[in-house]
Structure formats: C-alpha cells, structure tokens
C-alpha cells in the first residue's frame, strides 16, 4: 500500500522546519496563513466535457469531466448522478505505486465529493432527462501529476474549475423515446462555489496549505469546505494527531477568511479561459 509516510525527510530537515516555525517562519518564506502561488487553467483536455489543471506550488493536479447517460440512484430517482474518483498515478511521486486507488486516494476523492455535494454546487435535479430512468452521470476524475502536498485543496479547486468550464452535449428525447445527443452544448447547471481549505498542525502550530515536507512531519491536518454564503459544508480531520477545540475554531475562522479570495481566483481563471 502506498502511504504518505513513505515520504521520509531527514531529522535535521525536520528540526530545521520546526525551529523556523517557532520563529513564525516557513521554509519557503510563507506566512502561516498564506497559500503557495496558484495557477489555474481550464480547458486543458480537449476530449473531456470540462477540464482544469491547478498548480499549487509544485503540486500539480488535472481534473477531467466526462458525462454520460444512465440510471439514477434508486433512492434519488429525480436527480442526476455525480461521481468523484481520484487516481495517484506513479508519475506523481516515487511513493506512488501502480494499482487501484488506495485509502489516501479514496479519502481524497470522498472529501472533494463531500464539499461539492453538500454545498449543492451541482444542480443535480436539473440533470434528469427521463424522470426515474434516464439522468446524466457526471464523472469527475482527479489526476494527481506531481505531489508536493495539499492534494485535497489542489484537487478540489481543479474539480470546481473543471465543472465550471463543463459544456454538456444537449440531449433530446425523440418521438420513438430514444435519446439523441446533439452537437450543441450547454453549461452544467451550477450555483455557489464551495472552497476547501486545509490546515496542518506541526509541533502545535497551525499552518495553511502544507507542502509535502510539512505533511510528512505534521501531527494532523484539518480540511474544511465552505459555501459561498459562509456555511460549513464538509470537514475532514486526517493524520494520527489531534486538535483542541480552540484549534478547530482557529482553523474555521481562517478558512472563512481565505475562502472568498480563492473563490475569486477560480472564477477569474474560468472566465479568462473561456474566450
């Protein structure tokens, strides 16, 4: 099994990171509440219905959206279906091995899914073609191409940007009841952009957007996703350490503070990418 713990840094490096944190500094010069440089580009995969790539420092993630038509879930017959999957292909890190998604990839996909689903970002009820039997399936495939920490945030921004850039082929029901895919395309019905923000705890200090080095020595991480109207829509703690109540509150407040700027960045990139 692949594990983030496979990435081990020398003790001197660990001590160096911690001694800097004690002085309020990080190895790459960032503040504790500062993200790495972020680049977002949409429309990078021509054959996908929507796509985006996000570079967060040296973390590099591509998300492709593919849509198809299928059956709804039996308990939600009048809603489209939305599926998130994450792959950690071996190109991305010496600690990734070929094989089916491991617990880290599954957790990543499910946390991104949770933020998007619970915020009601995708108007699934508008993806019904024949009520109860034919709906659109929206597949979100997260592809990690270079792992330098904070895969959850990078993947979530790429997923959101890809969904915002998605154009689905129009589908009509013919006289004989058969479905016909048209050349014409329409945007995916969306509302309010959810934003995931991940903080790590290292030696009792809380910092946002951890690098792989920082993740390899962190006690724990806490991801929160917030909606456009400032509600919490998903939370996930990871790692074998713990958080106090006050630390959770601090993480929440910083998440609420950072999310609007990130949302602007994503929306700006999507707008800029669609000439």
């Amino acid at each position: 099994m692949v594990s983030f713990k496979d990435f081990i840094i020398p003790r001197v490096k660990k001590d160096y990171i911690i001694s800097l944190l004690e002085k309020g500094r990080r190895v790459d010069g960032r503040g504790f509440e500062e993200y790495r440089k972020m680049e977002i580009k949409v429309g990078v995969i021509d054959n996908a219905d929507g796509s985006a790539q996000v570079k967060l420092g040296d973390t590099f993630v591509v998300v492709g959206i593919k849509s198809s038509i299928g059956e709804p879930y039996p308990d939600e017959p009048n809603k489209g279906v939305f599926i998130v999957n994450a792959e950690f292909p071996p190109v991305a890190s010496p600690s990734f091995e070929p094989g089916p998604p491991d617990e880290n990839a599954i957790e990543l996909a499910r946390v991104v899914d949770r933020g998007i689903r619970e915020s009601n970002f995708i108007e699934l009820e508008k993806l019904v073609i024949v009520p109860g039997s034919k709906v659109r399936l929206i597949w979100v495939d997260i592809y990690v191409l270079n792992h330098d920490g904070n895969l959850i945030d990078a993947s979530s921004y790429a997923a959101v940007a890809a969904l915002l850039s998605t154009k689905l082929p129009k589908v009509v029901v013919g006289d004989d009841g058969r479905l016909e895919k048209l050349e014409e395309r329409e945007p995916l019905p969306l509302r309010g952009v959810p934003i995931h923000v991940t903080h790590a705890k290292i030696n009792g200090k809380i910092l946002v957007d951890p690098t792989l080095e920082e993740e390899s020595i962190m006690e724990a991480r806490l991801t929160m996703a917030v909606t456009e109207d400032g509600k919490i829509c998903a939370v996930q703690k990871g790692g074998i350490g713990s958080f106090t109540m006050d630390e959770v509150k601090a993480v929440m407040e910083n998440t609420l503070k950072l999310a609007p700027t990130i949302r602007e960045r994503i929306l700006g990139a999507v707008k800029g990418g669609q000439v």
Binding site: R114, L222, K231, I232, C233, V235, Q236, K237, M252
Partner: peptide, 21 residues
C-alpha cells in the same frame, strides 16, 4: 480535551458548528 476524529457533511453555519462541537 483533544479531538482525534472530526468529520462533517451537510450544512451548518459557523456558530452551529461550534455549538455542535
């Protein structure tokens, strides 16, 4: 007083989230 598992789905305001804790 240390939290070792914390997850959430659904929708809560920040105040509700703190009250939930």
């Amino acid at each position: 007083g240390e939290i070792t598992l914390l997850q959430m789905d659904g929708l809560l305001t920040p105040e509700e989230f703190i009250r939930a804790l």
